[in-house]
Every structure is written in structure tokens, then in C-alpha cells.
């Protein structure tokens, strides 16, 4: 057991015993791999783990516990997502106890039918500059690290996005794992008449991904939840990173760094031209 884990369990036990929080959302180990767990009793804290396989952002689960006090294990990107969601009035800061864990990159998942079983650091972690959550109630230092092995990659323009999106199964794993996809009805389902005919033409899936990409611009914190959940390995984070860069250049805004700077789309400046 690593020392960050010991510290994490001690903290979780303390928070639950003193009833500072109703539950702690963290990661546990299982036969199927590291997965989210929801600790409600101090006796369960021994389940908690921390290692570079803790990749799925837990922030998406916060919207299920809006009325509760929740302790959440947050990497740098997860903390940024919380910041951004507080600014969008989706979360209440005083209900969240952020257990910031220093993150040095997570592994790209080796999934069923992967032809390469060597472990590599996820591509989006290489670009990451925020290893610790910008807002926190407790910081756990850690030097747990994914092996840094560069994945060869081209420019985002070089990718054939149409053929990548053609592989899309519309399984919604990207949407459902994303901290920011909190719409109760997604453009791809539930609308009558349909916004996107998901069964009709694969090209319509391109429309769906464009809708999603536009909504992620200037919000995505590049936590990679979508990309690591995707069964057909569409490098979505690369697309959103590119959009974020465009946003940074044009508006000087980087999502999730602080609670003060308002997201540009929510601000109206007098004399501003559309």
C-alpha cells in the first residue's frame, strides 16, 4: 500500500466519523479493474485506492448527490471540472469536500481485444499542466506515476474525423461519463421529432459529435473520461483540446483554473459585437 493511500483512507475515515461528509466518492479495486466506489461507513474506507489506473472522472457522479455533503477524490482535471460546474450553477461548493490528490498521469486503459498490452500513459495526460486541483479542502501528495512512454501522434488536422466518427456506436459512453454532460435530454436521444437520427445514417453521428464538440469548447477540462470510455477509441480529447486552444487564443480563457473568472459565453460586455 502506498502512503497516499494510507493518508486517503485516514482522511476519509475522519470525515465520515466526524460527519463532515455523508459519503466519500473514491476508487476501489476489483477484479474488473479500478472502479468508482461510494463509501458511506467509516468501516469501508479500507476499500479506497489511489494509483494511475484511477482514470474515470468521479465528478459526473456529484450530480446524483446534490442534497448531500460529498467528499470526492479529485485529480487536477477533476478539480477543474468542479470549478467550472460551480460557475455553471450545477454544483454547490459548500456541499463538496474536495480531496485533491496529486496526479502525475493515468494509464491509457488496456481493454478487451486490445492488440497492444503494453501500458502507456494516456495521451491527454501528457498535455496536462494542472496536476493538483485548483480548489481543494485537503491535499494528498503523491508520486504515483504512469510510465511515461510517448504515443506517436499526428496533428489533429491529419486525423480523418469523418471515418473516426463513422466507427461511433452511439453507445453514449462519452456523454454519460462526461462531467459536463448534465443535460437531461441529449441531442442524440429523447427528442421527438429527432434532432439527430441516430439509426439512419452514420453521417448523422458526425452531426452529433459536432454538437457535442461545440458544447465542450471552453469548458472541457480534458480529463479524458470520454476517450477512455470509448469502445472504438475515438480520440475525442484531442478534438476538444484543439477547441480549447482556439478558445484560449480568442478569449484568453482556460476552463477550470479559478472560481473568479467567468466563462466568456456567460458574460455580456457592453458594445460587444456578436
Amino acid at each position: 500500500m502506498s502512503s497516499p493511500e494510507i493518508e486517503l483512507r485516514k482522511l476519509a475515515r475522519n470525515l465520515l466519523e466526524r460527519k463532515v461528509v455523508d459519503l466519500v466518492i473514491g476508487y476501489e479495486d476489483s477484479e474488473a479493474g479500478v472502479r468508482p466506489c461510494f463509501i458511506k461507513e467509516p468501516g469501508e474506507v479500507e476499500k479506497l485506492v489511489w494509483n494511475p489506473d484511477c482514470r474515470l472522472s468521479l465528478v459526473r457522479y456529484l450530480r446524483g448527490f446534490k442534497e448531500k455533503k460529498v467528499g470526492i477524490v479529485a485529480k487536477g482535471c477533476d478539480g477543474r471540472a468542479i470549478v467550472e460546474l460551480i460557475k455553471e450553477n450545477q454544483l454547490d461548493r459548500k456541499n463538496i469536500f474536495i480531496i485533491a490528490v496529486e496526479c502525475n498521469g493515468v494509464y491509457k486503459p488496456v481493454k478487451y481485444g486490445s492488440s497492444k498490452t503494453r501500458r502507456q500513459m494516456a495521451e491527454y495526460c501528457e498535455k496536462c499542466e494542472v496536476r493538483v486541483s485548483p480548489i481543494k479542502d485537503y491535499l494528498i501528495k503523491s508520486d504515483e506515476k504512469a510510465l511515461e512512454e510517448k504515443i506517436p501522434k499526428g496533428d489533429v488536422e491529419d486525423l480523418d474525423w469523418l471515418s473516426l466518427f463513422r466507427k461511433c456506436l452511439r453507445c453514449m459512453a462519452c456523454v454519460r461519463s462526461c462531467p459536463f454532460c448534465y443535460c437531461t435530454e441529449c441531442s442524440i436521444e429523447g427528442f421527438k421529432p429527432a434532432l439527430v437520427h441516430r439509426l439512419v445514417d452514420p453521417v448523422e453521428l458526425f452531426t452529433f459529435h459536432l454538437i457535442r464538440a461545440i458544447h465542450m469548447a471552453g469548458r472541457c477540462v480534458e480529463c479524458g473520461a470520454c476517450e477512455s470510455s470509448c469502445p472504438v477509441e475515438i480520440p475525442l480529447t484531442r478534438l476538444y483540446h484543439e477547441l480549447n486552444e482556439w478558445f484560449r487564443e480568442n478569449y484568453g480563457y482556460v476552463p477550470g483554473l479559478n472560481l473568479e473568472q467567468a466563462p466568456p459565453p456567460l458574460v455580456f460586455k457592453e458594445g460587444e459585437k456578436p
Binding site: 474488473a32 479500478v34 472502479r35 468508482p36 478487451y112
Partner: peptide, 16 residues
């Protein structure tokens, strides 16, 4: 086949 076990983003395991 084990696909759902491995691909589930949340680690839900039918073997349990």
C-alpha cells in the same frame, strides 16, 4: 465472452 466486464467504464462485473 467478458466484453461487458472489460468495457464497462464503471467496472460493473457480471461475474459478481
Amino acid at each position: 465472452c467478458g466484453r461487458c466486464v472489460s468495457l464497462c467504464p464503471a467496472g460493473i462485473d457480471i461475474r459478481e
